[in-house]
Design a protein around this nucleic acid. Structure first.
Length: 550
RNA sequence: UGGGGUAUAGCCAAGCGGUAAGGCAACGGAUUCUGAUUCCGUCAUGCGAAGGUUCGAAUCCUUCUACCCUAGCCA
């Protein structure tokens, strides 16, 4: 195979690498390791797949090999082209490039020939038991199975029947091709597992060319072997299938067969990962689609504002092992904050705005205040923001009756307006209904930011926007899609999406879909690439600022 | 109940006979023109339990225990 490598990323060592190291020391595989990422195109990729993608691609990278993207499309009833397109996009977006992009269904001819060989060897037979009978004959966890009456059919008859199955002469469920192994095996997977079933279905790739389709346990080892995969990395539930994986390749006398290694799939707190459930959320209209920013899909995380760098970093940090585990979602959130804080610009945005009038500031005066875009990254420069007599401050930055240890604005208190002046709240003006209408404040002209004023300190600094030039934006703030109720069951969170109106500095009018910012005090946001238009700016909250106040 | 796995801190996770890495979370403290960031510090005499081998055990042996997977013509 041609060795097209993905961009190189740092790789943390894990138990799979240790196993590979031993193989390599034993002189196996000629020093190169080939892997594959084999999704079934029956849904969108999620963060759990990202773990597998990172593992497979970086492992191949580490050992000078390559990784294929292969669609495991052996069951036409569940699969769709919509999904193959999204999968490709998501893998690329994560930053990986496959060596080859393949369909398992492209190997159907080879798989068929291999099945014929197994029949010829007496290792497979056509069975006409009904599905119910097959289940009964299989036995139970504690009782051995019974042999099918068709088990000792002559080879020639098996060959003829299998050919006829392929020709479409039988109905679905009427017969199957089975491996001839051991009905008394303690491993139920070895009790004459089904190799081929009949399905008169149109396949997204092969159309109506086939009406028999191979089962996963038979197809997968062949797919790996055909592609020259050395290590077939899959999840824990396939551990019991490994003897069958090995059996197929051994009976076919495949030289240098690949080896299957299992690892634990990713679980995240407050997150549902099963494709079945995610599909139901989409189909039942609980979310806007597979790319809803609340979804744990790659597409959802992308639209929410997560970066590929953050997701890759997360996948490195969680490690790889065989222990069932549930990673705390706060680690993922840490990764995106860590990535964004160094490269994203800040903007002043106030939620639940409160009007502030600086009574001693000239009515017609406008100043340009220079604000740092990112304190941690001076190379991101500064921007100019207008400042005048009437401003808005954030609803959370004023308390008429301050709680203990509150050191932002309250009557009689002085705070700094970030990048501007000290102001003191002199009077609270109320609406007829008792709510706060506006705050009358005074400013100290000697305290302008950058002026070197050292006369006195204030404990609070708050952000603001100029009332005259402020633009209104819509913020979509997300919470967990799933929460636990009183009974401890995981249920849909009715408050997973909050729409917030906010006032922002005029520069945000220029924001393009996909641009990310830090909104002071509120966390990290991204202009929604789907909803943001020239007239209407919508920002998705990626993640909160980590904070202990509130 | 058969078979296959897994147990190291609140959550992940290194460790592979020489005396418990690291990250997240949490909690202190310093700095701060945003209670963020940054910086420093605390956080398992303990590795599911009990025995045993050894000068020495999370690592080896024995016996338990708990949890996960497995009886699709899904993958």
């Amino acid at each position: 195979m041609s060795d097209v490598k993905s961009p190189e990323f740092p790789v943390a060592s894990n138990f799979i690498h240790s196993m590979i190291d031993k193989d390599l020391e034993a002189g196996k595989y000629g020093g190169k390791i080939y892997t594959r990422f084999p999704p079934e195109p029956n849904g969108y990729l999620h963060i759990g797949h990202a773990k597998s993608i990172c593992l497979n691609f970086t492992t191949a990278q580490k050992y000078s090999g390559a990784c294929n993207l292969r669609y495991d499309d052996t069951n036409p009833v569940k699969e769709d082209v919509e999904y193959v397109e999204s999968i490709e996009e998501d893998v690329k977006w994560l930053g990986f490039m496959w060596n080859r992009r393949l369909f398992a269904s492209d190997y159907f001819d080879t798989m068929y020939e291999c099945a014929v060989r197994l029949i010829q060897k007496g290792k497979a037979y056509v069975c006409q038991l009904t599905p119910e009978e097959i289940r009964e004959y299989r036995g139970t966890l504690t009782e051995p199975g019974k042999e099918s009456p068709f088990r000792n059919r002559p080879v020639a008859e098996n060959l003829r029947l299998f050919e006829e199955m392929k020709q479409g002469q039988y109905r679905e469920g009427e017969m199957v091709l089975r491996a001839r192994i051991d009905m008394a095996s303690p491993n139920i997977n070895m009790r004459d597992p089904i190799l081929y079933r009949i399905a008169h279905q149109t396949h997204h790739n092969t159309g109506d060319r086939w009406c028999i389709y191979p089962m996963y346990d038979y197809a997968h080892p062949l797919e790996d072997a055909i592609e020259g995969i050395t290590h077939s990395i899959c999840t824990l539930e396939f551990e019991d299938h490994r003897p069958l994986y090995d059996w197929v390749l051994q009976e076919l006398e495949w030289p240098a067969p690949p080896q299957q290694i299992e690892f634990a799939r990713l679980n995240l707190t407050n997150t549902v990962m099963s494709k079945r459930y995610l599909k139901a959320l989409v189909d039942d209209g609980h979310v806007e689609g597979w790319d809803d920013p609340r979804m744990p899909t790659i597409a959802g995380l992308r639209r929410r504002g997560y970066t590929p760098e953050a997701i890759r970093d997360f996948c490195e940090r969680i490690g790889v092992s065989k222990a069932n585990s549930t990673v705390d979602i706060s680690l993922l959130e840490h990764c995106i904050r860590e990535d964004l804080k160094a490269r994203v610009e800040s903007r002043n945005v106030v939620e639940n705005p409160i009007r502030v009038i600086i009574t001693n500031y000239p009515e017609d005066r406008v100043e340009e205040m220079e604000l740092e875009n990112n304190k941690e990254a001076p190379e991101l420069g500064t921007r100019k923001v207008p400042f005048s007599r009437e401003l808005y401050i954030d609803g959370e930055d004023f308390q008429e009756f301050p709680e203990k240890k509150y050191f932002r604005l309250f009557p009689g208190n002085e705070v700094r307006l970030k990048g501007a002046y000290f102001i003191t709240c002199q009077q609270v003006v109320k609406n007829p209904d008792g709510s706060v209408r506006e705050l009358l404040c005074t400013y100290d002209p000697g305290t302008r930011s950058g002026g070197g004023f050292e006369g006195r300190k204030v404990k609070g600094t708050i952000h603001w926007v100029d009332a005259k030039t402020a633009v209104e934006i819509t913020i979509r703030a997300y919470d967990h899609l799933m929460i636990k109720n009183e009974e401890g069951e995981t249920v849909l969170n009715p408050d997973s999406l909050k729409v917030i109106r906010a006032m922002a500095e005029p520069a945000l009018l220029e924001a393009k879909g996909g641009e990310r910012f830090q909104f002071f005090r509120h966390g990290y946001y991204m202009a929604d690439p789907v909803l943001t238009t020239d007239k209407k700016k919508v920002f998705n909250r990626i993640v909160d600022l980590k904070s202990s106040y509130k």
